[in-house]
Simulated scan of single mutants.
Amino acid sequence: MSFRRVFDKKKEAKKLSINKEILKENGSSFLHRNLKDNLQHIRTEVGNSPDVVIREFEIGGLQLQAAAVFIDNLVDQKLVDDFVMRSLMVDISQGTSKSTVSDKNVFDVIKDKALTIGTVKVIKDWNGLMLSILSGDTIILIEGWAEAISGSTRGGESRGVEEPSSQVVIRGPKDGFTESIGTNVSLVRRRIKSPNLWLETMKIGDVTQTDVAFMYIKGIANDKLVQEVKQRINDIEIDGVLESGYIEDLIQDQPFSPFPTVYNTERPDSVSANLKV
């Protein structure tokens, strides 16, 4: 029996290795080196959706083909125009020695010197690339590279900070949480200016890939409770999270209890007060 088990394990390992090679060759997990193949793959993935903008261009001064991919209304168009397209379509060798910019190192030059946006990262697989595009980033693909550059250009229309409608107060601040997780985090950080205010983020929902964040003050929050909350959130298996009530029902012990076991609020000052308890 032991020999058969060893043989079966070796057989499974060999099969897994072959499957990985097939995936790599077919390009189902990793990007292609050919720019046209990458762009066609993106068009196929999104069903040729008209709001997915693919801007093909030539990198300035190098005669090298490239493309920028982003979703209209999810990006800040001014960021894309001024700090991505303009940076790449002019001669990127300006301000740099001509001999230091070539077809071989242009990828690193673009990533480290040409793009004038805050956050830049390299993506090598299709899952990461599609998630980045659908999150509002701009993807730069270059002919001859099986990698992509992702620049943070998230923006678009969003609701401004307003007074919460469900928790009206006579005295105190009038600002309330919005649908933007970045805005909500900043509202709390403006009130608690401590490096011990820690933030952790994750994505929940197999379909919606919703950004979820939880904050706590290191040294005040019980470490065991923090780990328990993190574990319960990580254990959530659901297609989509469209509002906070989904998470409330899935992490609390008694979701049908007539007494509240999870506190929810639209007020950042109330959240800040509870974080410091």
Rank of each mutant, 00 (worst) to 15 (best):
F7S: 01
K9P: 00
A13E: 07
E25V: 06
N26W: 09
S29V: 08
F30G: 02
E45C: 01
V46T: 06
D51M: 00
I54D: 05
R55Q: 11
I59W: 05
Q63S: 08
Q63V: 00
A67Y: 10
Q77I: 13
L79V: 11
V80M: 08
D82T: 13
M89K: 12
D103V: 02
N105M: 01
F107N: 06
V109N: 08
I110Q: 02
D112S: 05
T119R: 14
K124E: 09
S132I: 00
T138R: 12
G144N: 01
A146D: 13
I149V: 09
S152Q: 08
E157V: 09
R159I: 07
S165D: 04
S166H: 14
V168C: 02
R171W: 14
P173G: 04
E179R: 13
I181S: 12
I181Y: 08
N184T: 05
N184I: 03
V185H: 08
I192V: 06
S194D: 15
P195N: 10
W198Y: 12
T201H: 10
D211P: 14
F214K: 08
G219C: 02
I220P: 05
A221Y: 08
L225A: 14
Q227C: 00
S244R: 06
I251P: 15
P258K: 11
D269Q: 04
V271E: 06
K276F: 05
